[in-house]
Amino acid sequence: MYPLVYHRPKTLAEAKELFGAGADATFLSGGHTLLPTMKQRLAAPSDVIDLTAIPEMRGIAVEARLLKIGAATTHAEVAESKIVRDAIPVLAGLAGSIGDRHVRHRGTIGGSTANNDPAADYPSAVLALGATIVTDRRRIAADDFFTGLYQTLREPGEIVTRIEFPIPDSACYAKFRSPASRYSIVGVFVARTGKNVRVAVTGAGASGVFRPAEFEAALSADFRPEAVAHCSVDPDSLLNDLNATGEYRAHLIRVLAGRAVAKPGALQSFK
């Protein structure tokens, strides 16, 4: 790897100061996207600022019907948390379906959300649940946060510190994994609160995670798998690569949305 200076600040103020002082600084959480990217010479930051030793970046709690998860909380911690399992069981299931056991021990919810990889699982949960992304300087609605492939509303030096999820009546997630990479080719997250249903699709969109309006309208009117049988997404708006064509992804979105709705509260992973 290129030369870099590693820092492990203990406070947000120190992290921000280090970011300002670095020529081309970046933040590190679990490092399971950043370090492989650096090895491939696709990133060469001058300073790597590890955020995981900052106390307010950690912790899981429920307050006022909001599930609050610190950004540096690992996938394994979310998957095993009794608080998460009681509040939004499928969120624990989703976290437990990411990567493999060792990856889940390092990767974090904040890193995954801030990175907005089009194949990442978390952005679909954050968007479908209508979560709020809390940073060191403001609160951002999920609907505004994800702006494109690997793009978010986050400004340079802005630190995601916590994600706050409103607790829905029920939520479910169905994903279809690439047989080789195990990343989701399509993942569909459905959240229902009263009559209001929000759906978010990951893995498939040419601009990253998105909400398919037709599916939401159909499920808000009739929350059954049959309701989405005739819903569709324009294949031209979807990724078209060696894993799957746009047409195949459009088909998978319909199939997985139906399967998700058929099992409220469940995580289903197909491969």
Binding site: Y6, R8, L28, G31, H32, L35, P36, K39, V48, D50, T52, A76, D100, R101, H102, V103, H105, R106
Partner: peptide, 29 residues
């Protein structure tokens, strides 16, 4: 593989399994 996939480099960090090719030495300090 050196790309976080194969698992040949797994060690325990505070008793937890990690792929050591994807951990900076400073993170383990």
């Amino acid at each position: 593989c050196d790309t976080t996939q194969c698992g040949c480099c797994v060690v325990h960090l505070d008793g937890v399994s990690v792929k050591s090719c994807t951990v900076l030495v400073g993170q383990a300090a």
